[in-house]
């Protein structure tokens, strides 16, 4: 049974993309969602509050998603946090780099609600 109350942080520099993900998550039953517009802000929020799940873009100003992922994995408190990367960067080297950095799963934009649900379910299943 998935926890529909889990707190999710959506990190993306495009406000429209955050809105899309928030709406899809709402449709999937996840309404406890916060947003950040780059990795720096995202990391601050993660350190200041208790989140259960992170959905992040790759290409962002100040701190890109891959650096946010590395910072999460390097932080004693945050290292176990599931991180789903939602990105337009579909090159093999990007995927390999994300996996090596400890990404929980990887979705290429544009994606469907079903695709997002499937990945979230897979991640949560592994984190049980």
């Amino acid at each position: 049974m998935l926890d529909q109350n889990m707190k999710i942080l959506v990190v993306d520099d495009f406000s429209t993309m955050r809105r899309i993900i928030r709406n899809i998550l709402k449709e999937l039953g996840y309404t406890n969602v916060d947003e950040a517009d780059d990795g720096n802000t995202g990391l601050e929020k993660l350190k200041a509050d208790d989140f259960d799940f992170v959905v992040t873009d790759w290409n962002m100003p100040n701190m890109p998603g891959i650096d946010l992922l590395k910072a999460i994995r390097a932080d004693a408190k945050l290292k176990g946090l599931p991180v789903l990367m939602v990105t337009a960067e579909a090159a093999k080297e990007n995927i390999v780099e994300a996996v090596q950095a400890g990404v929980s799963n990887y979705i290429v934009k544009p994606f469907t609600a079903a695709n997002l649900k499937e990945r979230i379910d897979l991640i949560l299943e592994k984190h049980k």
Binding site: I20, N23, K109, P110, F111, T112
Partner: peptide, 9 residues
């Protein structure tokens, strides 16, 4: 909704 990501891409 999902296809509105055209703006981001």
């Amino acid at each position: 909704f999902a296809n509105s990501s055209f703006h981001d891409l």
